[in-house]
Design a protein around this nucleic acid. Structure first.
Length: 716
DNA sequence: ATAGCCTAGTTTTTT
DNA sequence: ACTAGGCTAT
């Protein structure tokens, strides 16, 4: 036990050993948040304040849940399997499966991922003859999800105009269709679980009494519904231990409510607010920059990171002429670092939007530097895997229209759009699933679709008694999927992924710790399919060995690297213009994003921007990000090789000589440009043919670097 | 059923 | 600039 608490700093120790009370832990970046969370659980258990049975630990990602489980099992000698540690969605899924009848769901209910949901909405619009230009499916999905995340059903939705009325009608139709098919989207898992507990008193009391300690990770990312869900579960006297960092709240756009932290303070009278401010990750200069940036935000609970690690290196800043030039600079620096012995995996290049990775990838590729881009297509989202899963879903639940439509004609078996239109009309009339309606089809369509139905029936019979991996193997083969990909030129990788799917099933262990490979009953399949929907399968894709890491700032949250490059620090890009146009709240979220980015670095941080960048096929002239101005100059080391190059941030003071460059132009001179209009020369660089001048064109075109060789400037 | 053409949309994203 | 999804022509 003393081992357990060894090496904790004072606030950490205080948090871990708090008596059974509600508590809010404000855990700054790199302050040992996960450690505190896991040690708290371990301490509660090892001091017999609670049994493993009485602990509920909630995270947002499967990765975080796995990490917590792993750390916990190394701290206390208990079997952590079967403990309730998981994501909000995973735990709700578990609860709904255990009480599917009370929740009004079929035993084998399936989970729609976002792509499935979108497909269902599109299908619905078609059936209802609604113009999808007037009611864009994506927007409808967002509308539906946003309502569910507020705990609002279609029947309760507020209607203030005709347009919204229609959208609410579609929402209602969508709910009805999901119920008919017996499927849940992600938000539905939470809402239905919440409603179940709210409505069913014995069940609620049971879980309220069971869970004595509820611990929540990344509390700043919770939405309204998740907050209410926690409140409900804690209603029986359980103590809530919420860990979060309001400065790292970067998911407002998908419903996260930072305000939940303030509400928690109020609703739980959390007098126990503990701040973890000592940072064990980054050197002093990096933290100083992070603190300087974030202090410009108004709505904060307040926190100041510090370290005893010393100032470390200055923050390197580079202003490039173009995005290509920026990429060249970054890659050159990385090559040098790697030559000096820095592992490539410890170098990360971060960007605001994924589109920025192109130029960087190109440069890395050209220079032969291995790299890995995060944020691509994940394993369970690949089309061949989704196809195989659709067949499996049909075995368990024939009413799943989304699965039906995905594979009814894949591999192609002569079922065209006409037949399907027929079928959908019939199903609509009969108020039944497509699968059911198929029997009523006549003519050629009846024949072809009938053959498909028989195929599924045969598959079901043949696999009934088989263990899970063999079910999948059998279905992949007999459905014709395997043959289809064997004949396809580029099918090799897809076949390998299907093998990998069988592999995943063989090693799959469910929530209760039951190894599913040998369990030959229906529950195993449903349980595996839920796992496939909830776990996108990031870790299944080949782990990059010695490669530079490329990812968006969002994707970098929770990670750390020795060397971090933050690229594209330009006004309009980072902070993003869409966010800026949302007003102060939007800008503050961008600033938190910047804070997250900066605090990823352990030893060295590079900040770079470009004066011109290709965006949507056009060259954009950029000014440096306002966030750069928020970092005290004394922390920065400006790396621009040409000493005369005045960065566009730092008050626009001209550092170049006022000696005239080519054409008699000098700093302070007013000039006119055919496209940009009238401006003032702010700084100059180079002589003769190479000469470049920086001109401030004011509000319209802003600050621009122009090469005199190309740009025509006339003195005014 | 599929290849090729056109058009629209490009912030961030887990479950 | 680029790509994905929808549509037409074969």
């Amino acid at each position: 036990m003393s081992d357990l608490l060894a090496n904790l700093n004072s606030p950490q120790l205080q948090a871990v050993t708090l008596p059974p009370v509600h508590a809010l832990i404000l855990a700054g970046a790199g302050s040992g948040k996960t450690r505190v969370l896991t040690t708290r659980i371990a301490w509660l258990i090892s001091t017999n304040q609670v049994g493993p049975h009485g602990v509920l630990a909630v995270t947002f990602t499967n990765k975080a849940a796995r990490e917590m489980t792993a750390r916990l099992s190394s701290l206390v000698p208990i079997n952590v399997r079967g403990m309730w540690i998981g994501t909000f969605h995973g735990l709700c899924n578990r609860l709904l499966r255990a009480h599917y009848r009370e929740a009004g769901l079929p035993q084998t209910f399936q989970i729609l991922d976002s792509a499935d949901q979108l497909a269902m909405v599109k299908r619905l619009l078609k059936n209802l003859n609604i113009d999808d230009e007037k009611y864009p499916p994506r927007e409808l999905c967002h509308f539906i999800n946003a309502h569910k995340e507020q705990g609002v059903r279609a029947a309760q939705a507020e209607v203030y105009d005709h347009y919204t009325q229609k959208r609410v009608d579609i929402y209602a139709e969508y709910e009805a269709q999901c119920n008919r098919e017996g499927v849940c989207d992600f938000a539905e898992l939470l809402l239905r679980c919440f409603e179940l507990l709210q409505r069913n008193e014995p069940l609620r009391t049971h879980y309220q009494q069971r869970f004595r300690h509820i611990l929540v990770d990344e509390f700043q990312d919770t939405n309204k519904l998740q907050y209410a869900w926690l409140q409900l579960l804690a209603g029986g006297g359980a103590k809530v231990f919420a860990v979060g960092d309001d400065d790292q709240s970067i998911y407002r756009f998908r419903g996260a409510e930072v305000g939940n932290m303030r509400d928690f303070e109020r609703d739980y009278c959390a007098d126990n607010i503990i701040r973890l401010e000592q940072n064990y990750r980054s050197h002093g200069n990096i933290l100083a920059a992070a603190n300087a940036i974030i202090k410009n935000n108004r709505e904060r609970l307040g926190k100041n990171l510090w370290t005893d690690a010393g100032d470390g290196e200055p923050i390197r800043a580079f202003e490039a002429y173009s995005d290509i030039d920026e990429a060249r600079f970054i890659v050159d620096e990385i090559r040098e670092l790697v030559r000096d012995g820095v592992p490539a995996t410890q170098c990360a290049i971060l960007y605001r939007s994924n589109a920025q990775s192109r130029v960087l990838e190109h440069e890395l590729f050209t220079k032969g530097v291995p790299y890995k881009v995060y944020g691509g297509l994940r394993f369970f989202e690949r089309q061949e895997v989704k196809h195989a899963l659709a067949y499996l879903r049909l075995l368990g639940n024939p009413d799943d229209d989304t699965a039906f439509l995905r594979v009814v004609n894949f591999p192609t078996r002569g079922i065209g759009a006409r037949s399907l239109e027929n079928l959908q009309a019939t199903a609509h009339q009969m108020n039944s699933s497509l699968y059911n309606a198929a029997a009523s089809l006549t003519g050629k369509a009846g024949q072809t679709v009938g053959a498909f139905i028989r195929l599924v029936e045969t598959l079901r019979q043949e696999t009934e008694k088989l263990p899970l991996p063999e079910i999948i193997e059998h279905v992949v083969e007999k459905s014709g999927l395997a043959q289809h990909y064997r004949l396809e030129k580029e099918g090799q990788e897809r076949l390998e992924n299907l093998d990998e799917l069988i592999n995943a099933a063989a090693t799959f262990v469910d929530d209760d710790g039951v190894v599913m490979a040998n369990a030959g009953e229906g529950g195993a399949l449903a349980s595996f399919l839920a796992h496939a929907s909830l776990e996108s399968g990031e870790h299944q894709a080949g782990e990059g060995q010695e490669a530079v890491q490329l990812m968006s700032v969002h994707a970098a949250k929770g990670l750390e690297f020795d060397i971090v490059f933050i690229s594209g620090l330009e006004q309009g890009l980072f902070p993003h213009e869409n966010a800026v146009s949302e007003g102060r709240e939007g800008l503050e979220e961008e600033r938190r994003l910047m804070y997250v980015a900066v605090t990823r670095a352990r030893q060295r941080l590079y900040l770079s921007c470009a004066q011109t960048r290709m965006l949507h096929g056009q060259t954009r002239y950029c000014t440096a990000s306002s966030f750069l101005d928020e970092i005290p100059t004394e922390l920065l080391l400006k790396l621009n090789k040409k000493a005369a190059a005045a960065p566009t941030w730092g008050g626009y003071t001209a550092t170049a000589s006022s000696e005239p460059v080519a054409g008699g132009l000098r700093v302070g001179q007013t000039v006119e440009h055919a496209k940009f209009g009238v401006g003032v020369i702010v700084s100059t660089e180079g002589r003769g043919a190479d000469a470049r001048v920086q001109v401030n064109f004011g509000g319209g075109a802003g600050m621009k670097w122009l090469a005199l060789e190309y740009a025509k400037l006339t003195p005014v």
